[in-house]
Nucleic acid binder design. Structure first.
Lengths: 146, 146
DNA sequence: TCGCACCTTGACGTCAACGTCAGACAAGGC
DNA sequence: GCCTTGTCTGACGTTGACGTCAAGGTGCGA
């Protein structure tokens, strides 16, 4: 092991925060809630974040701002995601029982499809809102004369 | 005035709250922030809400949940709405100067068009999110075998 | 090995958007 | 007039999502 002990592609909490556009406190808070555990620590105990970790932060922010979910609800979604990649990783593993596995898959599927319903509802509500807004604008322009 | 002194179509804060799907406290709070002043009070000082008031509450909730605006931002939007109806009402009134009026109109127009930009951005972000979600689901279904 | 920037874990503070409670007044049927 | 139910105005409490310190450890170039 003559390579640097610090893996390349991993960064500290400061850079992670600025690259993800959140505060360091937010990252520690997400960890507190079990939303995001940095992929590694240095021997001295300092957090190291990977690209995947940063992507996860982006997902969290998206679920927050786009769907208006709170962090507890986001935890549910993320945990389901994690189960899925777990299953995908161990897909050919005979260790996990087939029925148990399919139960997890269908559970996850259900959650994702529920999420789709939520997003679709939000989207159509947004479209209604948008056409209403445009009607308003048309009336204002009309009022503005010519 | 032999009619009941309480106008029909107006309701107290309790009914207003339950019909609007919010708490009484929320209605009082919106009033505190200048978002929604009930159209009338009884001689004894009790709030009376009209249908228009209830529609305004619905608008507030829409701006909150759909666009994720906070109540201060919502206040700006609503105030602009109010200015517009004011202007529409006094459109043929010679009292308001033409230049002042057109200034208000274009100011309001600007705000509404900014809002449209926000909504469009949100909508397209939501569409991206949705197609991502559907791709996920497809993969899960594939994984689920047949 | 020193220095300094970066990081650690508590622990308390903050802000928005209400929730909740107390004590008193209002409305309307009997 | 009385009683019940609804509502009033403060005023303090709560919750989520962090912000902000304090007191100390870590990493690493000079």
């Amino acid at each position: 092991m003559d390579a640097k002990s610090v893996d390349p592609g991993l960064c500290g909490i400061g850079e992670a925060a600025s690259r993800a556009g959140v505060s360091e406190r937010a990252l520690r808070y997400y960890q507190e809630l079990g939303l995001l555990t940095p992929c590694a620590r240095t021997p001295g105990g300092m957090r190291r974040y990977s690209e995947a970790d940063l992507a996860r932060v982006a997902r969290i922010r998206e679920l927050q701002s786009l769907l208006g979910l709170n962090l507890d609800e986001i935890a549910v979604v993320l945990r389901s995601d994690d189960r899925m990649s777990e299953i995908k990783a161990a897909f050919h593993d005979t260790g996990t029982g087939a029925d148990e596995r399919s139960a997890l898959v269908s559970e996850s599927l259900e959650l994702q499809e529920h999420l789709v319903q939520v997003v679709r509802a939000k989207k159509s509500a947004l479209e209604d809102f948008l056409s209403d807004l445009e009607a308003r604008i048309a009336r204002i322009k009309e009022l503005a004369g010519k």
